[in-house]
């Protein structure tokens, strides 16, 4: 291992610190897992102990009482749609911005940049949705999410496209294909790394969002994590069910995370390293 700092004390002190830190993170998850399998009285004790008997039927009860299944389908439907739409629109927009040096391209680049810095104006957006009759509709929620995720996606794509040599474009032009065909057949596949990052990021953003769903969608359109919110209101003294519901809400994210971790980290750091 490269030593860039010389520490007098042994490295084991650092290791100890990290172990403590890691425990701080694992402990809450352990509590959730363990208590989701206990009976009500046991779970309400919020202890560390492994359950005496495994109450898997807590999970079945949760599925019956909460709208977990509906939340799952909502989340997947909205998430996938947003991700696909945002991915394509952002890639196309970034292509234009990165390649065309004209005034309008520069303008749109700054235009989208404001989306990253300026916070969203929720109340006026509510009014817009009202006027367009899009409140509490799938179309409305998806449009809003796409609009919110565009700035960061475009930023990431633009940075990446700039690293693709123009010769590739020119080679395709000689082929005589129409611009949009050329884009999708040749340039877009090259964007795969960024696309994966954008997909992972945007999906997690949509899945875990709180504010947008609270303001713009009714309970029947909420994704899985938000159903925990409804559940909490009804069953606040039943920690066994609550934890089971939380587990159900977390598991898809965890899977996504373990599989896509590399891309998430890459995405975060993409903007933070000077190019």
């Amino acid at each position: 291992m490269k030593r860039t700092f010389k520490f007098r004390s042994a490295t084991w002190l650092l290791e100890a610190v990290m172990v403590v830190v890691a425990l701080c993170y694992l402990m809450p998850i352990w509590i959730v897992v363990v208590n989701s399998l206990k009976d009500t009285l046991g779970a309400n004790r919020l202890g560390y102990s492994w359950p005496k008997s495994l109450h898997f039927n807590n999970y079945a009860q949760v599925f019956a009482k909460s709208n977990a299944l509906q939340g799952l389908t909502n989340g997947v439907f909205i998430g996938v749609t947003v991700v696909i739409l945002a991915g394509f629109l952002a890639a196309m927009a970034a292509y234009y911005i990165a390649r065309k040096g004209s005034g309008f391209a520069k303008f749109t680049s700054l235009y989208f940049l404001t989306g990253i810095i300026v916070p969203t104006a929720i109340i006026p957006t509510y009014f817009t949705m009202l006027v367009l009759h899009l409140n509490n509709t799938y179309l409305g929620i998806i449009s809003i999410f796409v609009a919110y995720t565009l700035p960061l996606s475009i930023f990431l794509y633009t940075g990446f496209i700039r690293t693709i040599p123009r010769e590739i474009d020119e080679a395709a032009i000689i082929d005589g294909s129409r611009p949009i065909q050329m884009f999708f057949r040749i340039v877009f596949p090259l964007l795969a790394p960024v696309t994966v990052t954008v997909i992972v990021f945007n999906f997690i953003g949509v899945w875990n969002d709180v504010t947008t769903y609270l303001y713009f969608a009714g309970g029947d359109k909420w994704p899985l994590p938000m159903t925990v919110f409804k559940f909490y209101g009804k069953f606040s003294q039943r920690w066994d069910l609550l934890f089971a519901d939380i587990m159900i809400a977390i598991i898809p994210c965890l899977i996504f995370f373990v599989a896509g971790q590399k891309y998430m980290v890459a995405g975060i750091t993409a903007g933070s390293v000077k190019s």
Partner: peptide, 14 residues
């Protein structure tokens, strides 16, 4: 290429 994103963003953010 940029128009759809531009319109959507303008309508729901700007």
């Amino acid at each position: 290429f940029v128009l759809p994103a531009f319109c959507l963003f303008s309508l729901f953010f700007i």
